[in-house]
Structures are given as C-alpha cells and as structure tokens.
Design a binder for these strands. Structure first.
Lengths: 189, 189
DNA sequence: ACCAAACAGTATCGATCACTACAGAATGAG
DNA sequence: CTCATTCTGTAGTGATCGATACTGTTTGGT
C-alpha cells in the first residue's frame, strides 16, 4: 500500500522532450515561444508537459540550465589552456562556431535572453577568474584590470551572438573575435 | 465643397504622443509592449492611436525612425572629428553615456530590438565609411580591414547595450569602451 | 481478477492580445 | 443656423495566451 510508484508509465523520453524545448526556446526566446510551439516541438500534449515539467517558466529554467551546463563545459575546457591568450582565443573561437552552427539556432540563448542575467554573471566570473590566474602566473601584466577585460570580453561575445542572430556568418564572427584579441594587453607588458 | 480639411481637431500633440510611444518601445521592446501600455503612456485611446498612426507596427516604425534619426545625428557628429581614433572614441563614449542615461530607458533600442537589423546595417556602414576615410587620410594603417573593425565596433556597442539593460553602470560601460579602443591599429602602423 | 495510481487526449478555462464598430461630441463650411 | 466631417470614448470583436477539468486508458500491486 501507499507505495509511490505505480500507474501508467510516461510515453515519451523526458530528456529528449527537454532537448526539444531547449531548441525551441533557443530559436524563439522565452516570450515568443508559446505552449503550442512547445507541445508541437516536444511531441507532447499540454497536460503531459505540465505533469512532467511544471509550468512554462520552470520548463524554461530547466532547459536553460541544460544549455548553461553545456556552455560551461566548453568555457572550462578553454580556461584550462596554459596561457590566458590561448584560453581567451579559444573561448572566442568556440563562441563564433557555436553561434553559427547550422545544426542549432543562431546566437546564444544565455547571451540573448534578457532574464538569464545570472548565467551571464557566472560567465563573467569564470573569465575574470581565468584572467586573475594569468596575472598570478605572470602571464598577464600585473596592472591589467581583469574586471574591465572580462566585462569587455562578455560584451564582445554578446555582440557576436546578436550579429549571429542577424545572419552573421562564421567568418564574420571570427573576424570580430580576432579583432577583440588585439585589445588584450601584450604578454609580459 | 469637398475641401479636405474640416471636422473636430485632434486633442493631443502627435509628436509628444510619438515620443511617449518611443520611450515605451525603448523600455519594453516591441513584443512586450502592449497597446494598453501604449495608450496609457501616450494618453490616447485606441481609436485615436489607430487614426493617427495606423497600427502598432507602423507606430513602432515611426518611433524607431525617430530614435534612429537622433542616433545618426550623434554618430555623424562623432564621425566629423578629425582623427579616426577621436571619432571612434567619441562614438563609444556617447554609447556609454546614452545607454546609462537615467532620463531614458537603459540600453539602445536600435541595438537591442531584433527587427531593427536594417538600422544596425546603416550604423555599420557609417562606421566603416569613417574608417575608410581614415585609411585614405593616412590616419589608419592601409592594411587595416575596415569591415572587420566596423563589425567589431558594432558588436562592442551591442554588448554595451546589453550590459546596460542588465544594470551595468556608466563606469562599467566606459571601461568596456576604453578596452575596445585598444583593439584599433596604432596610428601610422 | 480487481483496484488505486499515474498518464494521455479533448475540450476548454479566464485573461489578454491587437484591433475596431458604434455612437456621441466638437469643429469648419455654407 | 445646418450639415458633413473628423475626432473621442466605451465597449466588445475573434484570436491566442498559459494553464486545467475531465474522461478514458494503461500500468503495478494485491
């Protein structure tokens, strides 16, 4: 009695449905994505969606958290590179490629969606931490203001995301990235 | 007979109402701005709004054109400065101030609203033209790719606008602008 | 077999969206 | 004045929004 588990099993894969929701939010943003679009993309009826994910807002939070986790993986991989210049260059290169990948919607969900400011704050902190480490390593001039540099880099990534949404190509985004690299202080300077 | 002008005169100032609509669109964006918000901000009832401006989309086009004209004035003033570095520095400085002006909504309507890509294209062209002129003047290295630089600068401005929407301060945006300046090729290089 | 539990699908909820029909009020022309 | 014309405000249009009540259906436990 009162054993929690019982009843008809779910007829869809929750992770697959979440991925479909993520892609829809990514493509159209939170506000422009209606429940009809979500249920169509996920192959799920509204009551099933609400039973599995709560409401639209919680579904978005779960989907954006998934996106954020993937992004953080790439950022952390880049940050692990030996020099700050390599790390930053890799991050910007990743950004250009990810934002123009034909297999996914253009641009970056985290950088485009207004309500994901907390995620952007974490991205900023990751970049600043990597720059601070570079200063400690003697890899970056001690006088470099890592907070200003990190804010600049997040702004550039954001600009790249916006340009990708406007139809910017990979080459165009790579050119922006390469130009931004020149704003970094020279090694040992 | 059939003289066009007659009837009850409009009870509100069309330009003032348009300015109020612009501010509302600027603050909330096109999609999030409802007609109820517009009529409330403009002090006008829906039928008057439709008689004076057409529909929501045309009202937005007129309001964003007004915003665009004002922005172009500032950009052109900056472009008239003697050196490219001065011109670009002024544009970025203007951007930082305009995006954080307490008297207006944070950020830039033109750089934030997805559907205003055509305006961004014009901004890009203005910056590129100024850089091309600098190359002709010997003010910028002849090898400098002005299209890449212009795309970079628009991306930075866009990032500044986004950061302003997230609550970024004037000082923070000025720091981004100053960092971006360092990406410009050195004079005569 | 039988029942409680959890799911699926239809059909719909009230709220809000952009938008407008209608009727009264205010003007200029004759 | 009278009348056509244009504006204003109320009130409400169909459509769509996010979210659910309800009715079966499918499962596991006994």
């Amino acid at each position: 009695m009162l054993m929690g588990m019982a009843g008809r099993p779910r007829s869809f894969d929750r992770d697959v449905a979440l991925g479909a929701a993520l892609e829809q939010f990514w493509r159209s943003g939170y506000e422009r994505t209606s429940l009809a679009m979500l249920t169509s993309a996920m192959g799920v009826t509204p009551p099933s969606l609400y039973a599995a994910f709560g409401d639209k807002h919680r579904l978005f939070e779960e989907a954006s958290a998934l996106y954020f986790a993937r992004t953080c993986e790439a950022v952390d991989r880049a940050a692990a590179l030996p020099s700050a210049h390599e790390a930053i260059a890799r991050m910007l290169d990743d950004t250009a490629h990810a934002h123009t990948d034909a297999a996914t919607p253009a641009g970056c969900l985290m950088l485009t969606e207004p309500r994901l400011e907390a995620q952007r704050e974490v991205l900023y902190a990751k970049i600043k931490d990597r720059l601070d480490k570079a200063v400690r390593d003697g890899d970056l001039a001690p006088a470099a203001s890592t907070d200003h540099l990190a804010a600049f880099l997040v702004a550039v990534m954001r600009g790249m995301s916006g340009r990708a949404r406007d139809g910017g190509t990979l080459e165009e985004l790579l050119a922006i990235a390469e130009t931004a690299i020149h704003a970094l202080p020279r090694a040992g300077g």
